[in-house]
Nucleic acid binder design. Structure first.
Lengths: 215, 215
DNA sequence: GTCTATAAGAGGATAGAC
DNA sequence: GTCTATCCTCTTATAGAC
């Protein structure tokens, strides 16, 4: 636990480079079109060496997902430390964060249909732990926001959670960006709005809360 | 144009079976995991024979997409023929229809990241025509609904259109179904609600329109 | 643990007989 | 146009030297 040898540090550094490459490739071309050769090339390492660190392509994908889950958890903890934010504020901030990650081309996405991959993820302890930890935290915010009347209490919290996860890789963002007609901030603002308020016109103008300045 | 020979009828029938198989496989496993061998097997034909009808895997995918676009267009035309429905009613009906198709496991989905496939689709005349025809019709409904104050007029019509397309293959539906906790109708109702009204609690109860009975 | 070289196999596409 | 048999490329994964 205590002393980390130099060798081990180098090892960690290598693995970080590999996972970083996987993350990038998953975000840009997706799991099926990503080849292990590409990962090795982008990480600047021989493929055979890569297989000393990770024993399969599925494990590579798992490592990238663990990384993004960790980053999300870190972000969530940061928001929780801030005072004066409602549960809805925190949820909105997380949604914003995921959209920014996606817009930056750093959101890895995996095909839910690949049963071999899914089985590997389910057997991946770090992945499952990270997923449950994040879901627990977000879930508690969701039920709180529902109790406070800020999220629709008639929806199961589970569904709201799924929707937040789904919007983290919503293709609408990519389509709007590809059209080239809108600024990034505009795109993100629209996605947040439609996720929370839908496509319909609100029946009454929502009373705009006075923006609270943090000093 | 007039006389269709018996041989040609048989041909069409074969091709329908092939496209049907592709549609099913695209919906269940997706493009990358679908193999041409599977398509041939499910269509009850040898692979080499299949290649006499379609020259590539991309073309197979294109044919399946043309089929679903045609079905959607047919549905839209039917809605347009009905009187007494507002633009929003029609849009809602189309959303409902796509969700039902998805729930039935008949919604083919393609990876937007596969550039080779995308290029093939763009060069596919029937696909592009079908896509534009449907988009035009839906687009006109959208702008009408916006003018009538039923859809948020501050959103570009284009974004609303993208969102409708995206919800047609929203993973949330599959996640809710996989949880096994909810009835199909319930799942669809929630998805329609969140798409149009979002996750947030509405500030005022929307005035429920008296249900108009069709006699 | 890193490399070069290669095995092993899947999957898209085709040859050629009928 | 349909079939069987085959080609060939791409990709995952490993052998074995250093």
């Amino acid at each position: 636990m205590a002393q980390v040898s130099y060798r081990e540090k180098v090892l960690r550094f290598r693995e970080d480079a590999i996972v970083e490459a996987v993350n990038h490739l998953l975000a840009s071309k997706g799991y099926d079109l990503m080849t292990v050769d590409e990962v090795a090339a982008e990480a600047g390492i021989a493929k055979a060496s890569l297989y000393k660190h990770f024993t399969s392509k599925e494990e590579l994908a798992g490592a990238a997902m663990v990384r993004v889950l960790d980053r999300a958890m870190e972000q969530a903890s940061k928001l929780e430390a801030e005072s004066g934010a409602s549960a809805l504020d925190r949820i909105t901030s997380m949604l914003l964060w995921t959209l920014q990650v996606q817009l930056a081309g750093e959101m890895p996405t995996l095909p839910a249909q690949n049963s071999k991959l899914v089985a590997s993820l389910r057997a991946n302890r770090a992945y499952m732990d990270g997923l449950f930890a994040l879901s627990d935290k977000l879930g508690s915010w969701i039920t709180q926001a529902q109790a406070e009347g800020q999220l629709n209490p008639e929806l199961p919290a589970e569904m709201i959670l799924f929707t937040l996860y789904a919007r983290a890789c919503d293709p609408v963002l990519g389509l709007l960006k590809a059209s080239g007609n809108y600024a990034d901030e505009q795109i993100i603002a629209w996605l947040v709005t439609t996720t929370l308020e839908g496509l319909g016109k609100r029946p009454a103008a929502p009373p705009a809360p006075a923006p609270r300045r943090v000093r």
